[in-house]
Design a protein around this nucleic acid. Structure first.
Lengths: 233, 233, 233, 233
DNA sequence: TATGAATGAGAGTTCATTCAT
DNA sequence: CATGAATGAACTCTCATTCAT
């Protein structure tokens, strides 16, 4: 029943979603929805709750704890993009709709986001520690960079979710290049490269361990450029 | 009249905005709104149109044509963040609401976004040409990076708009560091530094010449860390 | 529009009355009802207000100020029964329905009732003064008797309104006998008799000045006794 | 189960009472209510039936058969006010709610009322016979007076039920004074006095023998006069 | 027998939209 | 040109009522 609600909310938004449509999609009657979840607000809140939990859980499960900072970020991003790609409506609910309807929902999303930002902040701080250059990165700066990184990831999730032919791994690679190496290094021919790891999601032989000479996602040829743009919007 | 509509749409969203409130805020009667703009859809479309045009125009006007690639990007970002900060309702309409209500509005936003992405793509390609390392950056790769950059900029615009004490310049600096130097260089103590230029937006004496020792945006001291997370959400 | 509301509320009661039926009876659409009167509660309140005012006004206008105490009571009762007989739905709203739906409406009815009780209290006190027997009637006693008299009048209004063939004058005469002379005097053959006055409501020659040898209302022959009982219930 | 129904109906009214609340208060499940009593209408009808029977039975049992007419009336009124005071929800069901929802319920209440009115009619006729003044009271007149007396009693029951500090005996005394002696006699200092009898309901020592010097009910001192009016409404 | 689970029908309320003026 | 006045349609939510067990 929550599945139906997430689907309708994700496609229509909170206000445009009608309880009739949700009930019909769930295959039950409207009063039943009200029996289990008291109101439209509560229903939406339950959706946001569940999906926020699911997303953070997916990211947490995707991170390889023993790896280096960039390795952990890489694995976390892959899990993040994989989850958002698999649950596009849920992602729309969280990222598009929950933030526009009252403090209540915004707070729920904020709690989820905080967890992810905190994780990223830790990674950056750890990397800075490893580089022994702490003085150059004050605590506030690290937080700012984490914000930027998470924001970029969110936008790329929108883009990847709406663009055909972009896999989660490609999105993650694009972001790692962009964020870790930086455009400057890319210009200079110094892309970031993924750490050695057995591919956990697709462990089959079809995936070569060294697939990263193309560090930036190579998208499928686009006959219709507007769709790309639109998708990324 | 459109001003009123943008304000109400930006604050309430498409569905929750009522024609009554728009007409009242505009100081005219409701039938007059329908006389000039045929329907709520058309009114919203006109808002999106106008604001998309205004934003692209602002960015275009802010770019210093003669500068280097990163200089142009820097000036463009400053113009972008300045505009979104000055017109928060317009930015909410474009980035939050227009994408959630039908292909029609999404397409209008897409057209705007395409222009900006194309501009960024040109800059990256030019920079790559200058570095003589073209082979490393295929066309698709450049487009992907441009997407990531624009996405990061959009997220930062949301964040700056919701966080007190973050100026447009600080947001732009944060993003330039993040995007151009990359986290890797930042770790290594090699931040990106802004090119020499007379500050165009705030040329007054209120701007100290030595503003760049803090390469990452120095945000206002935050006693309440949760507000940061929430604001950035 | 209020007429329709009073009619429907009077016949159905507050809860059972539907805004649809009220709007249809008023010959307008439902949103128009909500435009003028904000909610069902407000609509009901407006009805109660108007009818309470109308009833008190009718009683006030019916009282002959120069008469003796029983003469004033007699004229007031005639006006009261005339009004309730002419506006049965309004009377049902006030006496039956308004008292069962929340303090708000009960208070409005109470204000009206207080006016009438105060008037009756004055009359009884005046009569007691004239009889020079003040010590026997304390203030609280007078108020209690006024309550009883008004209560009896209300019940008789229900009865008269639902029983065919009972005129307002007959109801008033019944109550005057009952209240003023008392059953004891009636047993002893000492009925109360109406003071001399030109009949104001029905001034035609069809009404003899001395019509009161039958002091108690003679009802029409009742083929169906249950209806009488029901009406008086 | 009927107890719960009477309680909820009495407090909420027919329409506002929900079967859910009734079933919950009765401690059973809703389908069980429907098993025993087919519908909400039938349930309400059963309540009205039972309570009407209970009230008439209480009055019948309270009357002392051997007494004089006014003595019987006095004892009957005391039983009546005692019962309504002890079962306020039942009284509300009968007097307030049953009359507002369809002929069916009104007829059930009417049957009860007819019995009481018939009893009172007999009393008045008997008293008239004793006084040897039959010609002055035709049958219709007696019935009218009985209606007025019963109506006054009903109103006083409402008033006593809503006013703190008014006992059944006080209400009965007020009504006997009002009805039997009449205002005229009261003005002249000739109140009705209760016949000699051992107090049946409260025979304990809590009842002083000298309770009749105040012929009219002495209500509790009322600092707030509006509450009296409202309560009596 | 007794009930958890489910629903059809209808309630009050709102809003984009349109005439007559 | 501009609007006061009005409405059709749709919304969220409730409740008496009934199956399957």
């Amino acid at each position: 029943m929550l599945d139906a609600a997430v689907s309708v909310f994700g496609r229509r938004g909170y206000m445009a979603a009608s309880m009739d449509e949700i009930a019909e999609l769930a295959g039950v009657s409207k009063p039943l929805v009200y029996l289990y979840l008291n109101s439209k607000d509560d229903l939406f809140s339950a959706c946001v709750d569940r999906e926020a939990r699911a997303l953070t859980e997916a990211v947490r499960a995707g991170v390889r704890p023993g790896l280096s900072a960039d390795g952990q970020l890489w694995s976390g991003l892959r899990a993040f993009f994989t989850h958002t790609a698999r649950h596009p409506d849920a992602w729309r609910v969280l990222h598009l709709h929950a933030r526009t309807h009252g403090e209540r929902f915004a707070a729920e999303v904020a709690a989820m986001r905080e967890e992810i930002v905190a994780f990223v902040t830790q990674l950056i701080a750890a990397a800075a520690r490893d580089a022994h250059r702490d003085p150059h990165l004050a605590e506030g700066e690290v937080a700012g960079l984490a914000e930027a990184l998470v924001g970029a990831a969110e936008s790329l999730a929108d883009w990847a979710g709406a663009t055909e032919g972009v896999t989660a791994k490609q999105a993650a690679a694009t972001l790692m290049n962009f964020a870790w190496a930086g455009l400057g290094d890319l210009m200079a021919g110094r892309p970031w490269s993924a750490p050695e790891e057995p591919g956990p999601e697709e462990p089959g032989p079809g995936e070569p361990g060294q697939e990263e000479p193309a560090p930036v996602a190579e998208r499928a040829p686009q006959e219709e450029p507007s769709s790309v743009v639109q998708a990324a919007g």
